Amino acid sequence: MTSTPVDAPTLLRLGKPADLVAAVPVMLGFRPRESLVLVATGGPSGCRIGLTLRVDLPPPPHVRDVVEHAVAALCSDDPAGAAVVVVGARAQRRTDVVDAAVDVLEDHGVSVHTAVWAEHTDGGGRWGCFGGCACTGVLPDPAGTEFAAAAVLAGAVLRGSREELHRLVEPVDGVAIRRRERLLIAAAEQESVPDEDAGHLAALEAALADAAAGRCEIDDTRAVALAAALTRPTVRDAVLLRCAGEPGGLPGAETLWAALCRELPDPEAAEPAALLAATALLRGEGALANVALDRAQRSWPGHRLTRLLRSAASVPLRPAEVREALLGGRP
């Protein structure tokens, strides 16, 4: 399940179903395939977008169970209304999914104002309404809409697919990772890394500056140094607080954490993966946060920070609430 809360009041012209469907990839952060998407709406106008949630299209025997679980998560946002979008090659035929979603939402006191299907969410894809109105048409390019332009200005990133998110965090060079694993073991045995937090923080600051300048290169020496730095809770937490304290995000942080997910062995990769999840939650990008948390969990089952962030992602908390929780009352 992918869920993405919206932090700022975001308005969408719900009178145009095509605009809603075109906005879905922007709200999720990637173009969904074979998916059920639920969009919570509310606010004084009824057009404020709240939580956007995506699940894989379930096979017929499991429709009700999957929909009930998805609606329960959506209702954590206390929506006044909801939109139901079915995406897939045969989406037009999945009336079973739409009927179940409408029934369960109404059981929760949430009215469905829009129910629409789309064969895909790329520009040129066919869409249509479920029900008697029989509206249909062709989608605009999601990246070229006014909604997308506003979201990009606010820091959103539109990726081609969920698989692209996974590639951000998956190891890319098994030989290099095994070599670095041996180097980390040797460094720990020889105590050849500095003990002072200041030295570790300096290494992180230099790497962040390089990442912000587009020079995010991780060789063996830097990999070992940064892995050693992030395994120190005081150092990792200091960087985490800096990420939360920067309204626009810490420059270079997301690029660096993703690179370290790809370049470090397990269990050391859990630390940058958790930090990547935190920066994603601070931007309201639930899809990336969940992918990063999955990577952290695989790398280090039971990792404490991962467990804490998983709770925030599953509620889900809005970015402002995540920031407040991480700062713990700090200004």
Rank of each mutant, 00 (worst) to 15 (best):
E268K: 03
R31L: 15
H200V: 04
A278E: 04
H166Q: 10
A287L: 09
A278N: 00
A18F: 12
R310I: 06
V39D: 14
I177C: 01
A225S: 07
T231W: 11
T114D: 01
D220I: 13
V116W: 02
R48G: 15
E271H: 10
T306H: 13
Q92I: 10
L260D: 12
L11K: 10
N290E: 14
V6I: 15
G199I: 04
G46W: 03
L264K: 06
H120Q: 13
G137N: 03
T52Y: 03
E119P: 05
R33I: 12
L28N: 02
V98E: 03
P5C: 00
A209C: 11
E321Q: 13
P9L: 01
G302I: 06
A22D: 03
V21N: 08
R232A: 03
I177A: 00
E170H: 13
V37A: 11
G125C: 06
A176Q: 05
G137A: 04
A118M: 09
L276G: 02
V138D: 09
P5T: 00
Q297M: 08
P25F: 12
A8L: 02
P59L: 09
R31T: 15
L165V: 05
A292K: 13
L226P: 02
D78G: 06
G252Y: 13
L57T: 12
R162L: 15
P233W: 07
V102S: 10
R126N: 03
L38V: 13
S3M: 14
G125N: 12
V55R: 14
R330C: 08
E285Y: 10
A154H: 14
D266L: 09
L226Y: 06
C75I: 03
R295L: 01
W117M: 06
V37I: 13
A100V: 09
E181N: 07
E321N: 04
T121A: 10
L74F: 07
G88E: 12
F147S: 12
L53S: 06
H166F: 13
E268Q: 12
V169D: 08
A227I: 08
L105S: 00
G128H: 04
L139V: 06
D195E: 12
R94L: 09
K16N: 15
W300G: 11
L36W: 07
A151F: 09
G46I: 02
S111K: 04
E170N: 09
R31C: 14
P247Q: 02
V193D: 15
P247W: 03
L53D: 00
R298M: 09
D96T: 03
G329S: 00
R304G: 01
G42P: 03
A154E: 14
G125S: 10
H120A: 10
L241E: 00
A313Q: 02
T10G: 01
